[in-house]
């Protein structure tokens, strides 16, 4: 699904990623953990096509296609979805109309006609139910005045509507209470299939109790310093990140 090779990236001339290798196959869930400032969000932004970051070396391939050649919208058309850590408030655009515009833009890119309104409404109803989203919520302006939990649920709702092949959840657990966390995790789990893949980016192990990863990677100072299975997450939870810093400082 996604292959990242020796990825280096910088923002405003400052190196953030210093050689990332990652291989995510269909059907897999990968967790990327690491302390603040290690480059986690940069990595997710880069995969989604944020132009604030510059790739200086290495490459990213999605289903064999070089992502460097694709704009953010083209990456979305290829099946990449980023659940934002801080979803942007857009007053004046309702959730429903936003999702309608997004779905039809993706269909257009695939050479399809607009989704018939009845089909769209049915799908919206079904996915809203999955995430316990009230219909009143759907007519509100996108993310405007949403609580942290509502924003994150709305992100996963969009993911459910767009049915991406690669989802990146950037700190989806931040700002969520335990009930909202369960709803979001349940949604993500229900959407999982053997044809799609998920990258979960998180600082804490908590989310991984509900979205169980196949692989866990630890990012520190722009490099993946350790990879393992879900037990690695527990180890991090128990020991904190200091021993990772220790590992990194010894060049291991």
């Amino acid at each position: 699904m996604l292959t990242i090779e020796n990825l280096h990236a910088e923002v405003d001339g400052k190196a953030i990623l210093k050689g990332i290798d990652l291989d995510v196959k269909a059907g897999e869930i990968h967790a990327i953990m690491g302390p603040n400032g290690s480059g986690k969000s940069t990595l997710s932004s880069l995969i989604a096509g944020n132009e604030d970051y510059e790739v200086t070396k290495g490459e990213m391939l999605l289903k064999g296609k070089n992502l460097a050649e694709l704009d953010a919208e083209e990456r979305a058309h290829e099946g990449i979805f980023l659940s934002f850590q801080y979803p942007v408030e857009i007053p004046g655009v309702s959730v429903t109309n936003f999702i309608k515009t997004a779905i039809n833009a993706n269909r257009k890119a695939q050479g399809l006609e607009d989704m018939p309104a009845s089909e769209l409404l049915k799908k919206i109803r079904e996915k809203a139910k999955l995430l316990d989203i009230d219909s009143k919520f759907l007519s509100r302006s996108l993310n405007e005045g949403f609580s942290g939990g509502e924003k994150k649920r709305n992100e996963i709702f969009q993911m459910a509507m767009l049915e991406p092949s690669l989802s990146i959840l950037d700190e989806t657990d931040s700002g969520l209470d335990i009930d909202a966390l369960k709803i979001v995790a349940n949604g993500v789990n229900k959407l999982k299939s053997k044809n799609n893949a998920t990258i979960v980016i998180t600082h804490y192990q908590r989310l991984l109790d509900y979205i169980v990863p196949d692989f866990v990677h630890v990012l520190f100072d722009g490099k993946i310093v350790k990879s393992g299975t879900k037990e690695l997450a527990h180890e991090l939870e128990a020991k904190g990140y200091d021993w990772i810093k220790e590992l990194a400082s010894h060049g291991i």
Binding site: G49, A72, H77, F81, I90, V93, A105, Q158
Partner: peptide, 25 residues
């Protein structure tokens, strides 16, 4: 906001128009 819309598959021109429209809404 532009990146947010584009990351959902909405092309740049439409995303700009949508934001402009929302601004005047």
């Amino acid at each position: 906001a532009l990146f947010y819309l584009r990351s959902r598959g909405i092309p740049k021109k439409e995303a700009k128009a949508l934001l402009t429209y929302a601004f005047a809404n």
